[in-house]
Amino acid sequence: MDIDLVQNILYASVRNGTPLLLVALGEMVCEKSGVLNLGQEGMMLIGAVIGFMVAVSTGSLGLGILAAICAGALSAALFGFLTLTLLTNQVATGLALTIFGTGLSAFMGTGYIGKTLVGLQPVNIPYLMDIPVIGKAVFAQDLLVYLSVVIFLLIIWLFSRSRYGLVIRAVGENPEAAHAVGLPVLKTRYLAVLFGGGMAGLAGAYLSIAYTPLWSEGMTSGKGWIALALVVFASWKAERIILGAYLFGFASILHLIMQGSGYDLSPNILSMLPYVATIAVLIIMSRKQTMTRWLAPKSLGESYRPQS
């Protein structure tokens, strides 16, 4: 394999892994606070369609991205209201959010199918991008890729160095105890859910504005679900999420590489790979069941009703 090919594979893996990284980081924070939101796929689709619509009609990619974040957060607020205030079942409500988001995005985006947009352009960092092998993957990406890495670093800082990280973890581990020492359980959970929604919206916008600047129905193709598996795979650790996201990014572009190298395998068969890999990951994780249970936030998925 020549160096150019390796360089391009690394570049494309990072690009492809970025939406996964964004959603998975958002969901990780949400789960750390004890809330399991299975609506990632739906929020991503809502973010993708709104981001694309706003970007096309205003001509501003920035506004599109901002609108996508708000739309994701808004749909997360709906999820939060149902699960946190009305105490509905988190699994069922998340599933409902995905079904709703799929329907809503398909409905809103109908008039935008086939429209095109000049997508987000890479920001090349001079000299550094010429570093062999990794230069292009690290220093010739678009702004959202850089932003995703910044958010990743912030989250590392949040959970290792800041008080807020401790609050989120306390609320997720034992909401009763957190409430008893005066921590705002509901407020923390609402904020974590909103953050997750904003990140999912951003990830959707990344797909429709940067990665393939267009809108098509169901264009997230299960990335929201894969991200959920990724969070478990990473045992709720951000540094493992980023690694896993880029690995999955690699798995998703494998069919392009194979075709490029002249292997005559159906693209449809190779497109199954990320999903098969996700199942494989779930099997591997099941071998460490006790460890997973030990690392998972203790109150994950349970409703909490303050005793006032």
Partner: peptide, 26 residues
């Protein structure tokens, strides 16, 4: 109007159902 309005109605129905279901327990 786009046919996909079906999915929107189905999603709304499920959301409203989950919300109404609190009346069972509370």
């Amino acid at each position: 109007l786009p046919k996909s309005i079906t999915g929107l109605f189905q999603g709304m129905l499920l959301f409203f159902l989950l919300a109404s279901d609190i009346l069972i327990h509370y």
